[in-house]
Design a binder for these strands. Sequence first.
DNA 1: TTGATTGCAAAGAATTTGCACTGGG
DNA 2: CCCAGTGCAAATTCTTTGCAATCAA
Lengths: 138, 138
Amino acid sequence: METQDLRNAGLKVTLPRVKILEILEKQTTKRHLTAEQVYKILLEEGEDIGLATIYRVLTQFETAGLVTRHHFEGGNSVFELDSGKHHDHIVCIKCGKVDEFVDPIIEEHQAKIADKLGYSLTDHSLYLYGFCSDCKNL
Amino acid sequence: METQDLRNAGLKVTLPRVKILEILEKQTTKRHLTAEQVYKILLEEGEDIGLATIYRVLTQFETAGLVTRHHFEGGNSVFELDSGKHHDHIVCIKCGKVDEFVDPIIEEHQAKIADKLGYSLTDHSLYLYGFCSDCKNL
DNA sequence: TTGATTGCAAAGAATTTGCACTGGG
DNA sequence: CCCAGTGCAAATTCTTTGCAATCAA
């Protein structure tokens, strides 16, 4: 339950935090949301939580490691519940659909490249962009 | 010479455009600049070109395929002269140094993944982040 | 000449912050 | 009760736009 997640993260259990965490956990198909989208979902559920608070809470979640922030093409940030396991993303430039994947060979080569260039890797981001199966024939 | 590049791109040859293109071509070590950085370099050279113009010109260059725009971590866009050949980037999170690389195996696997997930790929962005050789021991 | 290009200042979009108020522990 | 957390509006940051003046062809 969310309450415990919040406590574990060292965050006081407040209504906005619980609600926002709920929203994120509830997402099955669309795991990646902008602050704005979270805001709208909350409004639909009758919760009147300020947009500023959503940004603040999501940033806290990010710091606490509960959530990951991505900068997809186009500018605005999207947030995703951190599942614990690393993965990369492929994004449909038409409908916004996002799929996740992991490719061990790619991961391995990234490490190799960083090494060859003398970098010690801390992070990486790989985004593929294209048309998903539903959009490519339109 | 820049004049010809501009003409080929269908752009009228104006002072701001020539100057900005010069700046970009002059970069050897630091090929990736923000609009702000271009602006400052121009000021140092005594050219008084408005920041808005720089954004406009860089956007035109992007459209014309002369320049590529990247969204590195942190938000602001950086522009790089388009060398014609695709490459990915590794960025030092301490000093901002950027290296470029290409890995055929990674490219190949990306295509494979997109295919498996039913996407037709149009583009991708791969950024590795870490400490470069100069920064990792500090 | 004349439409394209600039500069400036103002508008926008996304995100953050200041501050008085509220609520969780 | 008391301080962390919130809401709102104002501030920031990066980027784009409107419009009159200017410039290249």
